[in-house]
Design a protein around this nucleic acid. Structure first.
Lengths: 161, 161
DNA sequence: GTCGATCGCTGCGTCGCGCAGCGAAATATC
DNA sequence: GATATTTCGCTGCGCGACGCAGCGATCGAC
């Protein structure tokens, strides 16, 4: 069993210190490249992802999710509106609030930008059994939860500790 | 088998349109939060990741990897040097070149910043069999390769097409 | 009705970034 | 060996994204 434990340690090390950081780097680079292609900022692209993943949100909630002040978020929304990617929808229940939702054009442009990667990913996943897909889903869900929790923790605590 | 195919489609959809984008969003947020904590820019943190993942590099190579011009990369290195995270080492073989490598302090601070997430990840992976770990490693390697290839493709092609 | 809290939006200063150009050094050409 | 070309990293300059502080508008509590 010693060999198996060594194999396991090697697998863990490769995953945690190589593949995952490498993937994270590539993700940031890709987002940046897509932003340049769409003519918007990296932050704007992150905002579009947030809208696509978690649905319409107010500027305040959006500001928290993309790690911005409400003032900067207001400007970001201005840019995205000008780019035709999102739309401001007044909240009938609370006339202070404004809901931000992606336009059809915005969704289409984002889908086009990531179509290549989605296709590559589907091609890769075609070679996996349903059992393996379940394993991937389990880990991805945990990774999303853990990473979001860490980000939340960092943003909520003071820089001093 | 129809039910199985439906299950498989649901798994694929959840993975590609939910978990992976959600994880990517969390990764960007975490990097931004870590940058704020370390008192540097998001780009600077990405640079530190690149150095940790791919080893020391020249400013020019670094600029390509973080999607920056050589001029901006020079300023970025200035900031990281001032923050005590990296060091400029002259290349004895080519006196034009300078190699950028992380300092011990820089490595320690980065390790501290991500210690929480690494611990969470190891705790999660402790519940996986070696077979499952191999599946994860296979997919993450493919994801890193595919995502990097997409980013490369976007950066190398003109914005017009 | 009054007061405090919350929401989104606007001047102002700071700073990261791209662009264009610089000198230094390695390589190619004769 | 001398000259020309290319490559490398570094510096003024303008643009723009961001944080900060403050504003009016609106909601909820009493």
């Amino acid at each position: 069993m010693a060999a198996t434990n060594e194999d396991r340690a090697a697998l863990l090390g490769e995953l945690v210190t190589r593949s995952i950081p490498g993937w994270a780097i590539a993700v940031v680079r890709l987002n940046s490249a897509v932003a340049g292609r769409l003519g918007v900022t990296d932050t704007d692209v992150l905002c579009l992802h947030v809208l696509d993943r978690y649905g319409p949100a107010t500027p305040g909630a959006l500001a928290k999710r993309v790690n911005l002040t409400t003032g900067s978020a207001s400007r970001m929304i201005d840019r995205l509106v000008a780019a035709g990617c999102v739309r401001r929808v007044p909240d009938p229940a609370d006339r202070r609030r404004v809901l931000i939702e992606p336009t059809q054009e915005g969704r289409d442009r984002a889908a086009t930008a990531y179509a290549g990667l989605v296709a590559r990913t589907h091609a890769e996943l075609a070679g996996y059994t349903e059992e393996e897909l379940r394993t991937l889903a389990r880990f991805m869900a945990a990774a999303e939860r853990d990473t979001a929790a860490e980000a939340q923790h960092f943003q909520s605590t003071a820089p001093g500790d």
